[in-house]
């Protein structure tokens, strides 16, 4: 019994040591201090932001509330109309993956601090357009709103 007690005590002490950040063998790293979720699977928001980094977007904001998923993108440079179209298509592709249960997707484009354009559409139509990779179909069903810093009076 004493030996068992001593063994248990040693295990507890080692666990405390490992939990406090003490070096442990690789196969015992699970006992170490938590990483705060930094190495865990990404949340929908983090997955969306990681994906837009792969496209080359420096800054973005994303979130979902009451079925409406919104992705705001700062377009790094605007040199042709294709940059605008492919940016909001990118946003729609990202949102449809990150928020498959949403009912509406909204992509807002900015150039640095200047608001440019909002594109919004029913999520079902977007998911179908994604499936067929048909940007024109999405274009036909989306609502385009020009964004200005001064307009609207709202």
């Amino acid at each position: 019994m004493i030996a068992v007690g001593v063994l248990l005590a040693l295990v507890v002490v080692f666990a405390l040591y490992a939990r406090g950040g003490g070096p442990v063998p690789g196969w015992l790293t699970w006992m170490g201090p938590g990483d705060g979720g930094l190495l865990s699977a990404s949340t929908p928001e983090e997955a969306a932001l990681r994906t837009v980094r792969l496209v080359g977007f420096e800054h973005a904001v994303v979130g979902e509330e009451r079925g409406v998923a919104v992705l705001r993108l700062s377009v790094p440079s605007v040199s042709s109309p294709a940059d605008i179209e492919l940016s909001w298509q990118t946003g729609m592709g990202v949102l449809s993956s990150a928020y498959p249960e949403a009912t509406r997707y909204v992509v807002q484009l900015f150039a640095s601090q200047d608001p440019l354009l909002e594109v919004a559409a029913d999520a079902g139509r977007i998911r179908e357009a994604v499936r067929t990779d048909d940007g024109q179909a999405l274009r036909d069903s989306a609502v385009f709103t020009f964004l200005t810093s001064t307009g609207g009076g709202m």
Binding site: A41, S80, A82, E85, G93, S96, L117, D133, Q136
Partner: peptide
């Protein structure tokens, strides 16, 4: 450029590749 892009036909498609990439990221 923005107004021109809204009034034009589609310039290309990146919906599916972006969706696939996002799935792989997740």
């Amino acid at each position: 450029i923005v107004v021109e892009s809204v009034g034009a036909d589609s310039y290309g498609d990146v919906l599916r590749p972006t969706y696939d990439a996002a799935r792989e990221v997740a």
